[in-house]
């Protein structure tokens, strides 16, 4: 398999930032109340991750070891602020949903973690593949969790104010799904499910 494809796939499966590495959970639990917001959060994270990975990999040979973390943070914060301003200017309804969670991408461990663990030691192309892989892996789990929470927790899925999927009338949504404890419980089930999948495929390979 091509090296970049392997790196990309790692982010989706065996190194998935949410279900395996378990980083960036704080934002995930907070944002995953709505599919619409989660989708845009995913896009924002992919953008920031790919851009910061690219820049850091490009300059990895000239960034001195001792000050690499401050430099990473400035680069990441720069891109996050760009996303923040652009979203505010061109997608105000989305910005209204995500609010504070966009600036907080700066402190999302996934981004600094990948800069430190991957981009600082690998070529630009591989780092881009890693950024896309990690970002996509994050987004898939985030949107999946948001789908379960919004559909079962509020009884419908809304996109820009119109419901595209609805529970039958008379369904009383359990509010706990909308709150953090519900998110934690649901997230636990998702992790367990992923575990089960990977164990099953490992067992098949062994057989």
């Amino acid at each position: 398999m091509k090296e970049w494809l392997r790196v990309f796939k790692n982010g989706l499966s065996i190194e998935n930032p949410l279900t395996i590495l378990m980083i960036g959970l704080c934002a995930t639990l907070a944002v995953s109340t709505q599919v619409q917001g989660s989708l845009f959060m995913g896009i924002a994270v992919i953008f920031v991750l790919v851009m910061s990975n690219t820049l850091i990999a490009m300059f990895r040979k000239v960034i001195p070891d001792e000050v690499r973390i401050p430099i990473f943070i400035v680069i990441i914060a720069g891109f996050v602020t760009i996303v923040d301003l652009f979203m505010k200017a061109f997608f105000p309804p989305i910005y209204a949903v995500l609010g504070i969670w966009i600036p907080l991408i700066v402190v999302n461990c996934i981004i600094l973690g990948r800069a430190e663990a991957f981009a600082y030691h690998n070529t630009v192309w591989l780092s881009i593949a890693d950024g896309f892989g990690m970002g996509t892996g994050f987004s898939i789990v985030l949107v999946g969790l948001a789908f379960l929470r919004e559909f079962f927790g509020s009884g419908k899925i809304e996109f820009f104010g119109t419901a595209i999927l609805k529970m039958p009338a008379g369904y009383a949504p359990p509010t706990i799904l909308m709150m953090f404890p519900g998110a934690f419980i649901l997230f636990g089930f998702i992790v367990a499910f992923m575990r089960w999948l990977s164990e099953r495929s490992a067992a098949r390979k062994a057989a």
């Binding site: 001195p64 430099i71 400035v74 914060a77 720069g78 602020t81 652009f86 200017a89």
Partner: peptide, 21 residues
């Protein structure tokens, strides 16, 4: 190195801000 990164980042942000503000 930190100084250069900060200056470049500030310039990029100033440009974005002037477009979006």
């Amino acid at each position: 190195s930190v100084l250069i990164v900060c200056v470049v980042a500030a310039a990029g942000l100033a440009a974005t801000y002037s477009i979006t503000a």
